[in-house]
Every structure is written in structure tokens, then in C-alpha cells.
Design a protein around this nucleic acid. Structure first.
Lengths: 78, 78, 78, 78
DNA sequence: GTGGTCTAGACCACG
DNA sequence: GTGGTCTAGACCACG
């Protein structure tokens, strides 16, 4: 299916990039990802945008956030 | 009035649980409560979060802390 | 009465400095103070320590914090 | 000079051992030493004893403690 | 070995 | 980008 990724909302593009990184095994299960602050800088977006992207992946069960600790790769990643 | 207690900060939820224990007479007047360390483990939170809860009950006069000794049930509990 | 101010906790010393600034009219009523971040840098302490100092002045009614906005000089300052 | 180290107070013995480690270059300048807790376990003594030993080395200018951070090798070590 | 203070740095919720 | 909460773990001061 052909998609014009450029036209999609920024946070969905970021979510997709994160999703791909995860699927490519960039992060290990239960591994702590870089902080919101670092990820937002890395993608060159506002922290809010980054948080919306992370939020999507949390709903998908790919990620998990632990308050005061960080963002983690979810346990179940079928 | 409907309230979403789940959404309240952890330290307020814990303060409420401690308050109820006290009102139910779990601890005797002038009795030493478990230590901050033990209570924080019991509630599954960080010691600092537990301390914020205790701090609230100190303001209410329910609890009293003695440096180097422990947490005690306040003297006057009408 | 002689007191060893140096021995007082940092957050109490800082609260006193802020209190004096306010009483000297450094800030106007309803004026926004520098952010927690800026104040903590100015006093050379961690943000949490600065927050404890501000917390004391809030209890005294000198300051007021607006979530997401900042720290403000309290309305009534007779 | 002959000394009966065994007869010296424990904290002085510990201080001497730490002093020797430092002089042997075990720690780098400005390096963070293991925590009070770890050092006391390592020497098999109470934390109070360890603290008295560290205190001696602080007076000598060999060590410096930063509250909330740890024990550090002092800057000037002639 | 307890409570007290301080640092450090994370995510959260509100604009 | 602010203040709010939470975690983590250090040293301090009192017994």
C-alpha cells in the first residue's frame, strides 16, 4: 500500500520511525529507551509531539512508561 | 460528589490509606509505626513518596516523627 | 537570640532570602517570579531544594504557584 | 617508628587504610569513592565508624563529602 | 538504624 | 516551558 508519509501528522511519522527501530531490534526487551528529552531532540520535534508518538506505541503495547524512571520496551512483543 | 480517586497523586492515596488504618485503630496512641523504609516497601512506593504522605498526616496532627526514633501516633486523637 | 544560621537547612536559608527580597519590594504584587529552574540556578541548589523553600512561602501566603504558568507574588500582602 | 596498629581505635585503623589506598593512587583526583554504605561493608565496620575515619581524612584535606552526591578525593593532594 | 536533607533526573499535566 | 510527582540514592544528625 502506497502512503504519502510526508502528509501524515508529525507524531504519526515519529511513531512509525520508533516502531521500525523497535521492530529492527534496536532496543532490547525491557531496555530503557532514551529519555523523552533526548528522543525529542533526536527527532528534532517538540517534547509534546514526541509524547504523542510514544502514546500511540503504548496503546499498541510496544512501549511502557514508568513515572520517574523512563520509557521501556514492553514485555509482550509478538 | 464523584471523584476519580485513581487519578489522585500516589502520596495522597497512601495518606488516605494510612488515615483509615489509624482511624480503625490499627495503631495505638503513642505507638511506633513501621519505619519509613518498611512502610514504603509495604505500599510499593519510594521512600520520598511515603514521606509526603506522612507529612500530610503530620499536618493533620495524626502523626508525629521523632528524628532518629521513628513515626508515632499523635497524642491527641479525639 | 543567637542563632547559627549557617547550620539551618539550605531550603530554610533560601526561603529567608526570598522572603527578604519580597519584603524589600523586589517583586511587584501579582508579578511572576523567575522560574523554579532559574531560581534554583541563581541559588546554586537543586530544583527540589528550591521548591521546598517556595513551599514554605506558599504556606505563609507570600507566594502562589500556578501549574504550567509559574510562581507569583500572593495577592494579599498587608 | 614502630606502632601497634591493632591497638589503635578502629576508625583510625580504617582511616589509615583509606589514606594508604589514596596515596597509592587507587582513586583519581576528583573521583567519587564508593558510598559510605559500601565502604562500611567493605571494611566490615559500622557506618558510624567509617564516617569517623572519613572525617579524619576530610580534616587532612584528603577527602571531601558532597551532600547528596558522595565522597570525593580532595583537589589539593600535595 | 531512624528520620532529615540534598542531588539528579525521569515522566506527567497544563498552557 | 512551567510547576507537580515519582524514583533513586547519596550524606547528615540523632540515638
Amino acid at each position: 500500500m502506497v502512503m504519502n508519509y510526508e502528509a501524515l501528522p508529525l507524531y504519526i511519522q515519529i511513531a512509525q520511525k520508533l516502531r521500525e527501530s523497535i521492530q529492527q531490534g534496536v532496543y532490547q526487551v525491557e531496555e530503557k529507551l532514551p529519555s523523552e528529552h533526548q528522543l525529542s531532540e533526536r527527532f528534532g520535534v517538540n517534547r509534546h509531539t514526541l509524547r504523542r508518538a510514544v502514546s500511540l506505541l503504548k496503546e499498541e503495547g510496544l512501549l511502557r512508561t514508568d513515572k520517574g524512571r523512563g520509557i521501556f520496551l514492553g514485555v509482550c512483543r509478538t
